[in-house]
Computed example of a mutant assay.
Amino acid sequence: MVDVSDKAETVREARAEAYVNMEAKTLELIVSGQHHKGDVFATARIAGIQAAKRTWDLIPLCHPLMLTKIEVTLEALLQTSQVRIEALCKINGKTGVEMEAMTAVSVAALTLYDMCKSIQKNMVICQVRLFEKIGGKSGYFKAKE
């Protein structure tokens, strides 16, 4: 692990996103609340939050962090039969939270897949990426659309 003991604590924030492509009928079951496993979005949201908190346990060499904010949102994109997942992680600390945000969206997407695989097995998780970061030595980053 990188030694961060001499680094100054600063406010750091990261936003990541992922998409899950699926058939329109699968998305309709989720959105209408008719899915036999219950509230898919709520379960995926909690899974993403839990994953962000455990990133250090999942990704080798990540520091255990005391995150001050984790927000996971899921949005149904009916026209494209996709779910867009976004995570925001924030900390006042010595290291960034990019991996926590990307882990959150990845695990939320995997949870969504797991809950819906009995209905559709060919869903695709795609475009897991960091799209914005604030703070730290490298400063501000925003991905190009």
Rank of each mutant, 00 (worst) to 15 (best):
D3N: 15
D3K: 08
D3C: 09
V4W: 10
D6N: 07
D6K: 05
A8Q: 15
E9G: 08
E9Q: 15
V11A: 15
R12C: 11
E13F: 01
E13D: 01
E13L: 08
E13K: 03
A14Y: 11
A14E: 10
A14Q: 11
E17K: 13
A18H: 05
V20I: 15
N21S: 15
N21T: 12
M22I: 02
M22P: 05
A24C: 03
K25Q: 13
K25W: 01
K25Y: 03
K25D: 15
T26K: 11
E28S: 10
L29C: 11
L29V: 02
L29I: 03
V31N: 03
V31Q: 13
S32Y: 02
Q34E: 13
H36G: 02
H36S: 12
V40L: 09
V40K: 09
V40F: 09
F41S: 08
A42T: 12
A42H: 12
A42Q: 14
A42V: 01
A42S: 13
T43C: 11
T43R: 08
T43F: 05
A44L: 04
A44T: 05
R45Q: 15
R45W: 01
I46H: 09
A47W: 08
G48Q: 03
G48N: 01
G48Y: 01
I49D: 11
I49K: 07
I49W: 07
A52L: 06
R54C: 15
T55S: 12
T55E: 10
I59D: 08
L61F: 14
L61A: 10
C62E: 14
C62G: 07
H63A: 09
P64E: 11
L65T: 10
L65P: 09
M66S: 07
L67Y: 01
K69P: 00
K69Y: 12
E71R: 12
T73E: 13
E75I: 12
A76Y: 07
A76L: 09
L78W: 00
L78P: 04
Q79P: 04
Q79M: 04
T80N: 14
S81N: 15
V83L: 06
V83D: 02
R84L: 13
R84V: 00
E86Y: 01
E86S: 06
E86A: 00
L88I: 00
C89W: 02
K90Y: 13
I91F: 04
I91C: 01
K94H: 09
K94S: 13
T95L: 14
T95Y: 12
T95N: 10
V97D: 02
M99P: 11
M99L: 15
A101E: 14
A101W: 14
M102N: 04
A104D: 13
V105R: 08
V107P: 04
A108L: 04
A109G: 05
L110I: 00
L112N: 02
L112Y: 06
C116R: 04
C116I: 06
K117E: 09
K117P: 09
K117N: 13
S118I: 08
S118N: 02
S118A: 14
Q120V: 04
N122Y: 05
V124I: 11
V124A: 10
V124D: 11
I125Y: 06
I125T: 08
V128A: 08
V128I: 15
V128L: 14
L130Y: 07
F131D: 08
F131G: 10
E132G: 09
I134Y: 15
G135D: 07
G135F: 02
K137T: 00
K137M: 04
S138C: 02
S138H: 14
S138K: 14
G139V: 00
G139N: 04
F141Q: 05
F141I: 01
K144Q: 14
